[in-house]
Simulated assay, not measured.
Amino acid sequence: MTAQISTLGELLSAAGTQWRVYDIGRRITKIDKQHFAQIETTQAPYPYPLGGHALLAIQFWDNQATVDPYVWFLKFPLDEQSKLIVASRDHFASMVLEALGTELTGQQADGKLDNNPYVFTPNANKLAAFNALLKTELKRPASQYYEYTELYFSGKLPADDWQSLAVQGLADFAFRLDHGQNSENLQAIWASLPLEVKQPLSAMLEHVAIDTRFSEKLQNEINNSINENNLDELVCNLRAISGSHAQGLLAQSVDTILSSEYGRESDILLTLAGRCWEVFLDSERLFKFLESAAQNTKIEGLFASIFADLVAIPSLRPHVLGILRAENRSDDLSRAIGRLFS
C-alpha cells in the first residue's frame, strides 16, 4: 500500500465514502469504526472468527455519486490468536488501488473485483438477511416479496400458500418484526408453521435481536420440541432465539437442552457452538457443553471441530483453555481432549 494509506478504513475514507463494517460469518453484527481500526492494526483480535477467517461485509457509498451503496464481501485469514494477517489485507487493498485507484464508486467500479481472491459470495440466506438489514438501516422500502409474506403471517392467506413465499420476503419480514402487528402475528402462528417455512425463517431470525415476549414463546416451544421428540423443530426454535435480547432466557433454554437427550445430538451441538457462543462465557455451562460434545460418537472429529471453533473466539478462549486444566473431567471429555494432542 502507499505511505498515505495503510488500512482499509483509510482507503475508504480517502475515497470520500461513508462506510460501515459488519461481521457476516456468525451473526450479522455491526463492528464500530474504532474497533475495526484496532482489528486492522492488530491491536485487537477479530471478535467473531469462523473457520480461521474474518468474514466481513463492508458497505460504502458516495453521497454525491450513487444512490445505492456498494458492498464488499471479504474473507481474510486470521492467525492462531484470531488476529488479522495484515499481509492479506495489504494485498487486497493494493489490488483495489491498482484496479480502481481511489475511485471506489460509480460505473467504473462495477465488476473490477470479481476475481479478487479475498472476495466471496455469502450463501443465499445470508445475502437475503444482509439485504433486509441494509434496507431497514437506510430506511428504504422492503423488497417486492415483503407484502405477500406479511399477508401470509397475518393469517389472511391459506396456510398452504407457503410455497409462494420468497427467501427475501422472509428476510424482510424478520427484520421488520417491530412493524405493525408483525411480531404478534408471527408468535400466534409460529407453532403451526410448516417446517418448510420455519427453517428458512429461523435462519433469518438468528440475526435479529428478538424481544422478551417472543423469546418466552420460543423457550416454551423449545420445551415442547423436546417433549415431542422433534429434533428439526428444536433446531429451528434454537436458531430463532439465538440472537435474542433476553440472554437469560436463551441461557435457560440452552441449559434445558443440554440436560435433555438432545444435548449430544450433532445438529444441536453445532447450532449451539455456531450461534449461541455467548452463553458459554459461563464456565460451568461451557464445561457441560464440551462434556456433551465429547459424548457424541456419531460424527468423527466433531469434538475437535467444536473445540477449535470455540477456542478461536477471543472472549471464550481463556474459558476453553481452562477446561484443559480442569480436574473433574469425565473420562469421555478427558479422552476427547487427549485426542486433540495425539
Score class of each variant (00 low, 15 high):
residue 82 S to D: 10
residue 63 N to T: 09
residue 256 T to A: 12
residue 171 A to N: 11
residue 216 E to Y: 11
residue 314 P to H: 11
residue 132 A to P: 01
residue 231 L to C: 08
residue 268 I to R: 14
residue 66 T to R: 06
residue 119 V to F: 05
residue 273 A to Y: 04
residue 299 I to R: 13
residue 146 Y to E: 09
residue 235 V to N: 10
residue 141 P to A: 14
residue 295 Q to A: 14
residue 319 H to F: 12
residue 330 S to P: 06
residue 312 A to V: 06
residue 19 W to D: 07
residue 142 A to N: 04
residue 276 C to D: 11
residue 7 T to N: 06
residue 62 D to A: 06
residue 25 G to E: 10
residue 141 P to T: 10
residue 304 A to P: 00
residue 41 T to Q: 05
residue 27 R to N: 08
residue 313 I to T: 06
residue 267 D to S: 12
residue 304 A to L: 04
residue 38 Q to I: 00
residue 253 S to D: 07
residue 297 T to M: 07
residue 155 G to H: 12
residue 173 F to L: 14
residue 242 S to I: 08
residue 280 F to V: 12
residue 279 V to G: 12
residue 116 N to R: 11
residue 155 G to Y: 01
residue 241 I to S: 05
residue 214 F to D: 00
residue 88 S to C: 00
residue 195 L to I: 13
residue 175 F to P: 00
residue 257 I to V: 15
residue 76 F to P: 07
residue 223 N to I: 08
residue 278 E to V: 09
residue 317 R to S: 13
residue 247 Q to H: 04
residue 3 A to I: 03
residue 123 N to W: 00
residue 144 Q to R: 12
residue 58 I to Y: 00
residue 261 E to P: 01
residue 306 I to P: 00
residue 148 Y to F: 15
residue 59 Q to D: 07
residue 94 S to K: 09
residue 298 K to E: 15
residue 239 R to F: 11
residue 56 L to S: 05
residue 69 P to A: 14
residue 191 A to V: 03
residue 180 G to A: 15
residue 49 P to F: 15
residue 111 G to Q: 11
residue 272 L to M: 13
residue 86 V to Y: 03
residue 96 V to P: 13
residue 113 L to S: 11
residue 256 T to C: 04
residue 10 E to C: 02
residue 107 Q to I: 08
residue 161 D to E: 08
residue 192 S to W: 00
residue 174 A to P: 02
residue 65 A to C: 02
residue 158 P to R: 13
residue 51 G to V: 09
residue 287 F to G: 12
residue 272 L to Y: 09
residue 44 A to T: 09
residue 186 L to G: 01
residue 308 A to M: 04
residue 304 A to S: 14
residue 255 D to H: 13
residue 309 D to G: 03
residue 170 L to I: 07
residue 291 E to I: 05
residue 267 D to I: 07
residue 315 S to H: 14
residue 95 M to V: 01
residue 82 S to Y: 11
residue 35 H to I: 06
residue 139 K to N: 14
residue 125 N to K: 09
residue 5 I to W: 07
residue 14 A to L: 04
residue 198 K to T: 10
residue 11 L to Q: 05
residue 177 L to T: 03
residue 27 R to D: 04
residue 251 A to M: 06
residue 202 S to T: 12
residue 162 W to E: 02
residue 95 M to K: 13
